[in-house]
Amino acid sequence: MKRIIAIIALFGLTTSAWAQYKNEYNPESSIYDRYVTFNISARYGVSFPMGGQQGYIDKLSPTNLALDAEWLFPQRFSIGLKTGYQYANQRLPRQVYQNGDESISAVQTRTLSIIPVMASLSYYFADNAAAIRPYVQMAGGGAFVDYTNYFGPLADQKSGFKGAIAPAIGLKYYGRREQGFGAEIQAQYQNVFFNYDLLKNSAPSLMLSAGIVYRWY
């Protein structure tokens, strides 16, 4: 009887150890697949003005930073927060502008700064622990916009918090399963519902960004 109990106990211990072993090393039951896990991302981007924004600044902006934080759910989707900093500027040679009855001769330096504050919903085409994770994303929220058009050193400024949407597609690459650090590329169309003077209708842009990601639990 004692021997039987001993065998059962031994069996129980070894199987539980075996089960643990299986849990840790079987990719099918990664921690990422069982719990809500986290991902942060920081990317540098170039931005191309579109639509109404082209009437104000029509050249590429090389000064953009994107920051994302995401809660990854086991069902391949994530909810996140997006922010960053986008800055575009353009200097125009001296020109005469009409402002009502006034003629203004000035060198214009046009600037546009945008700080987005958005919530995002993403769907991934691979599980949370995968090495390569392509995704589609829809983000919405608002953005702090600062429009400052300098006439010489004098500023014509308008700023405010406006609504914004930003659908995106991208790819996260971690090198191997369950690895924390990785890289990300993203193409994002962003439309900020801001208009003032030379910037008519709204301020859409296309941003291509690349950077680093880190996931953990």
Partner: peptide, 11 residues
């Protein structure tokens, strides 16, 4: 490039 010249007249 700094100066801004503003002119106006009676139409």
């Amino acid at each position: 490039d700094s100066p801004v010249y503003i002119t106006n007249y009676d139409r």
